[in-house]
Write a protein that binds this DNA or RNA. Structure first.
Length: 435
RNA sequence: GUGGCUGUAGCUUAGCGGCUUAAAGCACUUGGAUGUGGCCCAAGAGAUCGUGGGUUCGAAUCCCAUCAGCCACCCCA
């Protein structure tokens, strides 16, 4: 009875055939970030839970129910452990908090500010799998830490837009933007919002009643028609901004206009995580009816560094969902050229040739030729067939005869021509032919 | 966490008013006279029908549970 072990729920194998998409995405992101002058950072895949609890905030789904704990399986009783060792550790549900932690801990404040950091890698959330939602998903993103200039907000949105355009998605997306103000505005906002919705609790849906208690601002993105009606005449968040926040937001929008970035001011856009302040934005797919799948999102988080114990340091950033974006790329039928497995395939017949084939491969790969051979198949026919499937442009055939003559047959797979070449002249010969 | 749909070889599927050795295409291996690929032809390997239980003389086919996948809600990239 064979029992096959399967992958855990919500995880996926990224098979060789799919790698070309990932490479395409990674290389384009990398290029954009290089141009922008951002430097790559990689933080630990797991951190102390506190890092996220303090920043993302209690009451959010991420903190309350979506984090994976990391612990040592053979861990002894807690009382024998040091305080540090008993601290709960979790797989990162996102990058931002970890990067902020690294910024503080490594004294990146001593670099010329602002510090521009980018990343690409996996994040983990315990969720029920769904379209564009996995328990392991890959995020790439950018954080600009150390200035609060509205121009920075606009410039990172520009970068997001340019990156997506490079990927061929410029026509498929729309950018929505809003400002949720600083922490003082937010307190005021919540109060006003609660005052307003107080009178409509009976008319709001169950979810909204729950939101009313847990996170009143979230009522704004309810999709229920009956709630929408009530929301329509609710006070606008923008009107509740304090003067400095209002001014900041106005300048962000002016900068976006100047950069000719198409955006849509969405006064109902709010974000769940505690650390967001002022500018928030999301990038959606244009044709999606519901439009509830953001492929990229971000905003300003002027309080984050302070929340983690650093000096008050403004920052702004965004993150893109790799799987979601790749899904769009595939659906749009954007063609990414197939990667050939090899240029040259060495084919050998007989034991002696087989042994000397390895030395020949060593010589060729030393000279940076992309070369391989096929083991486990004896017949010439089978080896040629495999070479053909691998996309080899050239086959070198080394049989008994060639072994004795110290030659090799050069076979061009595209036009089926072949000729005999002395082994000592092979490298020169290949260099000319493969040019 | 809640709800809907689905689950047959590596992949895509047929069979599902219960009964002989579960079928096909693609992919894979081998061969088509001994040293030549991509087409074609032939043969072969490969699933006990997600898992567990139940109904029945008898189930891939009916019932229940469970797991997984997809989708929606919640939430989020």
């Amino acid at each position: 009875m064979k029992k096959i072990i399967q992958n855990p729920r919500g995880t996926k194998d990224i098979l060789p055939e799919e790698q070309k998409y990932w490479r395409f995405l990674f290389e384009n992101v990398q290029k954009s970030m290089d141009v922008f002058g951002a430097q790559r950072i990689e933080t630990p895949i797991f951190e102390f839970a506190e890092t996220y609890i303090r920043t993302i905030g209690k009451g959010t789904d991420i903190v309350d129910k979506e984090m994976f704990e990391v612990r040592h399986l053979a861990s002894p009783a807690p009382e024998t452990l040091s305080e540090e060792e008993t601290k709960t550790m979790v797989l990162r549900p996102e990058y931002t908090a970890g990067i902020a932690r690294a910024y503080i801990q490594n004294g990146l404040i001593n670099l010329p500010q602002p510090v521009k950091l980018w990343y690409f890698g996996p994040a983990f959330r315990y969720e029920r799998p769904q379209a564009g939602r996995f328990r392991i998903h890959n995020q790439f993103g950018l954080e600009v830490i150390g200035d609060n200039d509205p121009l920075t907000d606009a410039s990172i949105i520009l970068l997001a837009f340019q990156t997506l355009r490079k990927l061929g998605l410029a026509e498929a997306i729309k950018v929505e933007i809003n400002s949720i103000g600083c922490s003082t505005c937010r307190t005021k906002m919540k109060k006003k919002i609660v005052e307003y919705f107080q009178d409509f609790l009976e008319d709001l849906c169950n979810d909204c009643n729950r939101r009313f208690v847990e996170n009143p601002l979230r009522i704004f993105d309810c999709k229920e028609p009956k709630c929408q009606k009530i929301i329509d005449s609710a006070p606008q968040l923008i009107d509740l901004l304090c003067d400095p926040c209002k001014k900041h937001f106005k300048e962000v929008l002016e900068n976006l206009d100047a950069l000719e970035i198409p955006y849509n001011l969405n006064p109902r856009l709010v974000r769940g995580l505690d650390y967001y302040t002022r500018t928030v934005f999301e990038v959606f797919l244009e044709d999606q009816e519901e439009g509830n799948l953001a492929i990229l999102a971000g905003g300003r988080y002027d309080n984050l560094i302070e929340l983690l114990g650093g000096n008050s340091t403004p920052a702004v950033g965004w993150a893109g969902g790799a799987e979601r974006i790749l899904n769009v790329i595939k659906n749009k039928g954007i063609v990414i050229p197939e990667q050939k497995l090899t240029d040259i395939c060495l084919i050998h017949m007989g034991d002696k040739a087989k042994k000397s084939a390895l030395a020949l491969i060593a010589k060729l790969s030393e000279a940076d030729f992309n070369v391989t051979n096929i083991l486990g198949k004896e017949s010439l026919k089978a080896q040629l067939r495999s070479a053909s499937k691998m996309g080899a442009r050239i086959c070198l055939i080394l049989g008994q005869r060639e072994f004795i003559d110290k030659t090799v047959i050069f076979k061009d797979m595209e036009n089926s021509t072949q000729e005999t070449v002395p082994q000592e002249k092979l490298i020169d010969f290949l260099q000319k032919r493969l040019k």
